[in-house]
Nucleic acid binder design. Structure first.
Lengths: 186, 186
DNA sequence: AAGTTTGTACAGAAAAAACTGTACAAAGTT
DNA sequence: AACTTTGTACAGTTTTTTCTGTACAAACTT
């Protein structure tokens, strides 16, 4: 686990590794909430405890997995802003380290993933609203059709209202005002 | 799509179905954020537009999928509080309808899924802190080991602080005060 | 109680996703 | 320019997940 402190006793290394392993296990498992694989979660945990930025080869040897998998895993974490690419003169390998600001990680997740979903949904809903409106106005539907259309419209409007709220919630994460509303310190 | 209004023209049914289908498609796809399958997302969309609570058989025939799949899909949605079981005298089949309060759906998701993850992580982190503290105090580690332990400890403490914040954020969702902080109406 | 109907457990099939090894382009070194 | 090294594209394999059909228990009806 990157503990290449050759002057350590075996026992000392074991103890540290055992503690780390349990944390990595739990944190990694719960990262499925972010839509990442258990393996990728473990990779994240590994990087979390790494004493220095790591290369793909180092990760591969620690995780006992192929470099290809490390490459894709790291890219997933990069996309989620959970890991940063680090430049270090001397080495021409790419180096990666976790983003230790977990507040940032959390809010970025919303600002990126959830925002995208919300915008998609809003666009689809608004398009549907427009279409239904047009149908109701121009094509003189029968009474029963009109009733169904109005019912759909009402549901869609309600959903749209929710997404507008969610959009504002995401705003507070993106611009950091969420920390005024729910302060970091108690 | 449940439009068994026999007096409708084919064209009218097609129009309504087309509009619904697009919304279902988009909403269903983005439900992967909640960790549900695309199929389950579509099932949700189907129920969203259903004019009345549906049975498993009806869902199966609309989705062109087996009843078994409907059963598991509905259970997933029930677990997420996205769908409710509805009682209706006369029918002895189970009936389901979506939870139309999407604010509730969203906050429930946090109150359940995220809360569970946060509690797991907090427990693991605190256990690790305790272990490291004990190691530092009792087992007189070498200088370099102590340095690593302290470094780990610092990272873990920082993570713990974040989770405490997240816990409080989830509190605001669970007790509804989030709507004071980020109002539903603009 | 015998006969239906309904939901789900379970095993197997189908589909999707994760993972690996090879190949190679891009970038760095000599 | 020839030679290394590094990251990733891609094809094939393994593993996991989803989906289906059958079987059956629980609940309801007669």
């Amino acid at each position: 686990m990157g503990l290449d402190q050759t002057q350590w006793t075996q026992e000392e290394q074991d103890i540290v590794q055992r503690i780390r392993k349990r944390v990595i296990e739990v944190v990694g498992r719960n990262m499925e909430l972010y839509g990442v694989t258990l393996s990728t979660g473990h990779l994240y945990g590994l990087l979390f405890f790494a004493d220095k930025p790591m290369t793909l080869d180092e990760m591969g040897s620690e995780m006992k997995m192929s470099k290809t998998s490390m490459s894709t895993g790291v890219r997933t974490l990069l996309d989620l802003n959970m890991v940063n690419k680090v430049w270090e003169k001397g080495s021409r390998k790419d180096l990666y380290e976790v983003e230790y600001d977990w507040y940032q990680t959390f809010t970025d997740y919303f600002a990126n993933e959830w925002r995208r979903a919300v915008e998609n949904n809003l666009q689809a809903l608004r398009r549907a609203i427009k279409e239904i409106d047009r149908l109701l106005e121009t094509s003189e539907p029968s009474e029963s059709v009109a009733a169904v259309l109005k019912n759909d419209l009402q549901k869609i409007r309600q959903a749209e209202q929710y997404y507008r709220w969610l959009d504002r919630l995401i705003d507070t994460m993106e611009d950091g005002t969420i920390y005024d509303l729910v302060p970091k310190e108690t």
